[in-house]
């Protein structure tokens, strides 16, 4: 082909076997985040459903229950808040929960086909690829969370000060990392969860409902002490509370510790599980089984 002459670089020569550089790491992570965001933007349906789901809760569920929430001032609130305001942090965490599980579980579906294989033949270490994938998922969840906050703003669900939108960012990143890492760990460990409907039933719903997302913990304690204990230990509760306090420029230290600790544990588990030498991917029934 005469075109070969014009090709500026002969393709076999210029990149000999090399050790990856720090700049290369950044390029790699940047590329993964870029692609994930691009896909997200292209998939309008996904964007809409990610936005509509919490808004349905906000507009319909919360509107119906606004008067029935017990009136009591709990930190970080300094006065009485509408139920919409109360559940907004929980709905943001729900966005991140869905997003984290969705993007991680897509790795299960993609394991033998598509994007996953291309990702994993990258020369960068497997742990780094997983972390990048996680970061990409968090970036997308941030887009969703802020889109939700923007709509909520016009529904008069607002933090005390506009600074809240900034102070909530670190909390959103942390909770996004935790929920994404949890999804990653689950995607590698539980084979049965390859069906999203069962993930809904066995993970998302229990985590969401047995948390402080919909009711304050003191209310749950009054209703059922056992449930209250479950809620208090549920990492999702702490993701919600971390976000809730951060929206008001405050740090809930217990939640910060739980979210960081649980997130790190999930990430380590996922890295272990995806490691080609130690992990579970190779023992999972061969490529033919996956087809």
């Amino acid at each position: 082909m005469s075109l070969v002459d014009r090709a500026p670089a002969p393709l076999s020569e210029p990149l000999p076997a090399r050790d990856v550089t720090f700049g290369g790491y950044l390029v790699c992570m940047g590329g993964i985040v870029w692609r994930e965001s691009l896909r997200f933007v292209h998939q309008r349906g996904r964007f809409l459903s990610a936005l509509v789901r919490p808004l349905v809760w906000l507009f319909i569920f919360a509107a119906g229950f606004r008067a029935t929430l017990g009136v009591s001032i709990i930190p970080p609130y300094e006065t009485y808040v509408l139920y919409e305001v109360y559940i907004a942090p929980g709905l943001i965490a729900m966005i991140q929960l869905f997003n984290g599980l969705q993007s991680s579980l897509s790795m299960v579906y993609d394991r033998e086909v598509g994007a996953m294989r291309i990702l994993l033949v990258s020369p960068y270490p497997r742990w780094f690829l997983l972390v990048s994938k996680l970061v990409a998922g968090v970036a997308v969840s941030l887009l969703q969370a802020y889109a939700f906050l923007a709509v909520a703003y016009f529904w008069e669900v607002q933090p005390d000060s506009l600074w809240g939108y900034l102070t909530v960012l670190p909390a959103l990143i942390l909770s996004g990392l935790m929920l994404g890492a949890m999804g990653l760990a689950m995607s590698s460990i539980f084979k049965q969860l390859e069906n999203f409907a069962s993930v809904m039933n066995f993970v998302i719903f229990p985590m969401f409902f047995a948390s402080s997302a919909l009711y304050p913990l003191w209310r749950i304690q009054q209703a059922n002490v056992l449930l209250w204990h479950i809620c208090s230990y549920n990492p999702f509760t702490h993701a919600v509370e971390l976000i809730r306090f951060a929206l008001y420029g405050q740090v809930e230290w217990t939640s910060l510790a739980v979210v960081s600790g649980f997130g790190a544990a999930c990430l380590l588990a996922a890295i272990y599980a995806y490691d080609p030498s130690a992990g579970l991917t190779g023992r999972r029934g061969g490529p033919d089984a996956a087809k």
């Binding site: 990149l15 990856v20 790699c28 940047g30 692609r35 990258s122 020369p123």
Partner: peptide, 19 residues
Amino acid sequence: DLELSVLQNLLYHAALHGI
């Protein structure tokens, strides 16, 4: 990636190789 352009697919792959 069917949703992305040909070029975007290639750029993503290049990034995975640190280019």
